[in-house]
Simulated assay, not measured.
Amino acid sequence: MKIAIIGAGNMGGAIAKGLAQGTIINNNDITVADPDIEKLKQLQNFASGITITTQNQNAVENADTIILAVKPWLVAQILGQLKIDSKRQVLISIAAGISLEQLAKIVSPEMTIFRLVPNTAISELASMTLIASLNASKEQEQQVVDIFNEMGLAMLIPESQIVATTALTSCGIAYVLKYIHAATEAGVEMGIYPKAAMKMIAQSVKGAAELILNNDTHPAIEIDKVTTPGGITIKGLNELDHAGFSSAIIRAMKASK
C-alpha cells in the first residue's frame, strides 16, 4: 500500500514516523507533502526511504491512501485543489470537527473515507486512536485499525460517538497530565525533587493503565487490592472523594463534549 500524508506538522509528522517504525507499510511507500522543506528533511533523516515533496498533488498521484493531516480550516481548500480518484483511493482525515458527511461533499459521496481522532501520545507510539468510516468494507476498516494499532491502540467506533470519545481520549490525556502535575507538586512539598517525583508518578500512571489494558479487570478491583483496612491508601482515597475528585473528572469530561 502506498500512503501519502498531506501535512508534516506535529500530528502528520508523528504519523509518518509511526508508519516508518511499523511493519505494515514500507518506508519506500510513504510520501509526505508540506510547504516547510525543513520539516520534510527532518522526517527523511528520521527514516530513510520516505519520499518528500512540497507539492501536494505529487504526493497523492500514485497513492492508494491519502492521510489529510492539516488544520480543519484548510481541509476544503486543500482537498479542492487535489485531483483524487475517488473510486480507487481512500481518504483518511484527522482534521478535528470535520464530519464524514462534510468530507464526502468535498470529494465524492462514493469515496471510502475514514475520520480519525488520535491523541498526542502518537509521537510515542502510544496513542488512543478513534476511527469512524464511510463507504468502507470490513477489510478496509481492519486494515486501518491494524496500521494505527502499531502507533498505540486503535478502536473502530460509530461517528456519532466521536464527540464523546474525544473528550475521553484527546482531552482526557490532558486531564491525566494534570494529575501528574498536581501529584508532582505534592511530592515536592513532601521533600522529593521534581524530576524524581514526576518519574515516579508517570510510571505509576503507566502501571495503572497496563493493569487495565492487559487484564480482564476493573479499576475498583485494582483499588481494592491496595486499600487495607485503616491503611494510608484508603485515607487518601477518602480525601479525594471528600474533595469531589470523581465529580470533577466527570464534569470535566462532559464540559469537553
Rank of each mutant, 00 (worst) to 15 (best):
Asp224Glu: 14
Ser170His: 12
Ala243Gln: 14
Pro194Tyr: 13
Ala186Asp: 11
Asn62Tyr: 12
Gly7Ser: 15
Ala136His: 09
Gln140Ser: 09
Ala95Gln: 02
Met1Asn: 13
Met253Gln: 13
Pro219Ser: 02
Asn62Gly: 08
Val117Asp: 11
Asp216Thr: 03
Tyr175Leu: 13
Gln143Val: 08
Glu124Val: 07
Ile3Met: 10
Pro194Trp: 14
Arg251Leu: 00
Glu38Cys: 07
Lys225Gln: 06
Val176Trp: 03
Glu124Gly: 09
Gln140Ile: 09
Ala33Gly: 05
Glu222Met: 14
Thr129Ile: 04
Lys254Asn: 07
Ile66Thr: 00
Leu156Phe: 14
Gln44Val: 06
Ile131Phe: 05
Ala196Cys: 13
Gly207Pro: 11
Asn58Val: 01
Ile67Asn: 13
Gln81Asp: 12
Thr166Ile: 12
Gly12Val: 00
Ser204Ile: 13
Gln42Val: 07
Lys41Gln: 06
Thr23Asn: 14
Gln77Ile: 06
Ala186Gln: 11
Arg115Asp: 04
Ile162Asn: 00
His218Arg: 13
Ile157Val: 04
Met151Ala: 00
Asn26Gln: 06
Gln81Tyr: 07
Lys138Phe: 12
Leu237Ile: 02
Gly22Trp: 14
Glu101Asn: 15
Ala121Gly: 06
Asn215Cys: 09
Ile249Pro: 03
Ile37Arg: 10
Gly22Arg: 14
Thr165Pro: 04
Met190Phe: 09
Val144Ala: 01
Glu61Lys: 03
Asp36Trp: 15
Gln44Tyr: 04
Asp224Cys: 12
Asn10Ile: 11
Ala174Trp: 02
His218Glu: 03
Ser86Asp: 09
Ala96Asn: 01
Asn58Ile: 06
Lys178Ile: 05
Ile78Pro: 05
Lys2Trp: 00
Pro72Ala: 02
Ile250His: 08
Ser246Thr: 15
Gln142His: 14
Pro72Gln: 00
Gly97Ser: 11
Gln203Val: 09
Met190Lys: 07
Ala209Trp: 05
Ile66Pro: 00
Thr217Asp: 11
Ser48Gly: 09
Glu185Tyr: 02
Thr54Gln: 08
Ser204Met: 15
Glu210Thr: 13
Ile92Glu: 11
Ala96Met: 07
Thr165Leu: 15
Lys178Pro: 01
Asn62Leu: 10
Glu222Leu: 12
Lys39Arg: 09
Phe245Gly: 08
Pro72Asn: 03
Leu100Met: 13
Tyr179Pro: 07
Thr65Cys: 02
Ala209Arg: 09
Val32Met: 12
Leu82Tyr: 08
Ala63Tyr: 03
Val90Tyr: 10
Leu103Cys: 03
Ala20Ile: 07
Gly80Asp: 09
Val60Cys: 10
Val70Ile: 02
Met1Trp: 08
Asn27Gln: 15
Ala183Thr: 11
Ala209Phe: 08
Tyr179Ile: 10
Pro219Gln: 01
Ile201Ser: 01
His218Pro: 04
Ala63Phe: 06
Asn215His: 10
Ile249Tyr: 01
Leu177Met: 08
Ala183Arg: 07
Tyr179Met: 12
Gly207Ser: 15
